[in-house]
Amino acid sequence: MRIGLAGAGTMARVHAAAYRRMGAELVAVYAPNRAASASLAEAFDLEPFEDYRRFLDAVDLVDVVAPTYVHEPLAREALQAGKDVILEKPMALDAASGRRILEAARSHRRRLFVAMVLRFFPQYRRAAELVRAGAVGRLGVVRLKRVSFPPRIDWYRDPRRSGGAIVDLMIHDLDYARWLLGDPVRVFARRVAVGEGEHVQALLRFPGGALAWIEGGWAYPEGHFRTGFDLAGDAGVLEWRSDDPPPVRTVFSDRAPPPEVGLPMAGLEEDPYELELRHALSAIATGAPFEVAPEDALAALELALAVRASAEGVA
């Protein structure tokens, strides 16, 4: 299965490295101009394309890792051309656009996997499994945190092109809350500007009375990214935070410069991006269902849009 990357930015590099580690047949990269894809093409020995049609002819599966605002045309054209598609999250900027992508997959009978990578982070997955197994009883209050620094790439910082921090970043935890508790019945959110970034706190209420508090944003100084969860049930609690010491640490005098976009990493061999792509390729090859359906990705997007509307004071 020949895989091509549609996009040549931060996520393209992360996915390319994961494909290489798993020995997948990654062959091509598309970017609207050659300069954008040159270094990626060279680093991973890929054939670069400037023409999307010709790129589609050269691959069997398209991994759309381009900026969010071009997801829909790239994904739909690939599906139309008969290609299976892996689509980076958030799947689209608005629900109608997300629905059109889903509809394209349906009508052309192609597989569509939306890369909701948080579900492949081992600590989040383990916690969800423990909750399902009843380890903490019935969930009562769920706390989820994901705060990073403002990305240094223009389109991320433009809410018209990225959806802003709620749609781009908080969507992970909104999806996780849905995974644990289903669809909320009510949402209330406050957003404040922090320097050039933003900070959001959202309250969710679920059927049966469970509550969730979700914090997200681009509000920290450059290089800092903190995540965590606290899942309280009527019989116990599960806690994890990125502030906790990781399995491997180094103590050096010099500090590496921060990346352009904060990405949470699980560390060690359990790279969640690799786990996610492995799962997608395997499910596509065997025809098995995806562990996170595109309908879930769409529901997470709709929830993110509801949180954003509340934060903007739109009823």
Binding site: R138, L139, G140, R186, R205, L211, A232
Partner: peptide, 18 residues
């Protein structure tokens, strides 16, 4: 505020509040 009682079915008061 969202106020709820998910933790103690034996009481009338709230056991959770955000």
């Amino acid at each position: 505020a969202e106020i709820s009682n998910p933790f103690d079915p034996e009481v009338e008061v709230d056991t959770a509040g955000l």
